Simulated assay, not measured.
Amino acid sequence: MSNTPLRLVIFDVDGTLVDSQGDILAAMKLAFDGEGLQVPPRSDVLGVVGLSLDELMVILAPDAEAATRARLVQGYKDAYMTLRADPSRGQSSPFYPGAREVLAQLQAQPDTLLGVATGKSKRGLDKLIEAHALEGVFVTQQVADFHPSKPHPAMLHEALRETGVEARDAVMIGDTSFDMEMAAAAGITGIGVGWGYHPAERLGAARHHVAQFDEVPPLLATIWKD
């Protein structure tokens, strides 16, 4: 029996595992068009990816009334699901290069558990897992429906509780400042990625940085070196 403690690798989803910006930008346009509002610039939308929808609509539509923002949230959710179901748009939210291979490599390690902590809804995450045949990969799945928005550490606290893993034996891998600040608040090592929606200068709370997916396994080995 191994004396190695259980390790937990928690991934953000949008901008980390999958490139969902096409779906996000298109759904946001449909939501804002539906309310007759000016669509926010691409950079503004991608800059708030990772926050819960309620939180990000306050930033993207600061002058809108609460009822309007609530309709924007629902309009975005409905548009996103409709877009993902449209076969004419090709593969929705494709994996970043190397993502699937690294997930398989880590899942094969007997002392390593995988999880996600995402601003997506449970419905959105379920659809993505189904689309990419990821059933059974993530033993803990933390979504926006049940927690305060990132960077509040509630998602990570619950992931640790569900798996029984200590904070020192967990990492959070993400592409945004919200992910890295959440990790720091939970006492978990944050690993910022270089291919997502926030530039490197916004990932100041990260303890480590990787430029491509195949750098993740050797970095984890270094972090957890006995």
Rank of each mutant, 00 (worst) to 15 (best):
M1Q: 10
N3C: 11
P5C: 04
P5F: 04
L8Y: 08
V9S: 02
V9M: 03
I10P: 06
L17I: 05
L17W: 12
V18F: 15
Q21E: 15
G22S: 04
I24N: 01
L25T: 11
A27G: 04
A27N: 03
K29S: 14
A31V: 02
F32L: 03
G34T: 11
G34D: 14
E35F: 09
G36K: 07
V39A: 05
P40R: 08
P41Q: 02
R42E: 15
S43F: 12
D44R: 11
L46T: 04
L46M: 12
V49D: 10
V49L: 08
G50C: 06
L51W: 13
S52N: 09
L53V: 01
E55I: 04
E55F: 05
M57H: 01
P62S: 10
A64F: 12
E65D: 12
E65I: 04
A66E: 15
A70E: 15
A70C: 03
L72M: 10
L72G: 03
G75E: 11
Y76R: 11
T82V: 09
T82F: 06
R84C: 12
P87A: 07
P87F: 08
G90C: 11
G90N: 07
S92I: 05
P94C: 08
P97I: 10
R100G: 09
E101C: 02
E101M: 02
E101G: 01
Q107A: 14
A108E: 14
P110Y: 15
T112Q: 13
L114A: 00
G115S: 03
A117N: 09
T118Y: 10
G119Q: 13
K120M: 11
S121T: 14
R123E: 15
L125R: 07
L128M: 10
A133N: 12
L134Q: 00
V137G: 01
T140A: 03
Q142M: 15
F146K: 14
H147A: 01
H147R: 05
K150G: 11
H152L: 02
H157F: 15
E158Q: 13
E158F: 06
A159D: 08
A159K: 03
R161A: 13
R161L: 13
E162W: 08
E162T: 12
T163A: 07
T163Q: 09
G164S: 10
E166H: 08
R168K: 14
V171C: 00
M172A: 06
G174K: 08
D175S: 05
F178L: 08
F178G: 00
M180F: 11
M182T: 10
A184Q: 15
G187V: 10
G190R: 01
G190Y: 10
G190F: 15
G190A: 06
G190K: 02
G192Y: 13
V193Q: 07
G194W: 01
G196C: 05
G196N: 06
Y197E: 09
H198C: 08
P199K: 06
A200S: 07
A205D: 10
A205W: 09
H208P: 00
H209L: 12
V210L: 12
A211F: 01
F213W: 15
E215W: 00
E215T: 00
L219M: 09
T222C: 00
I223H: 06
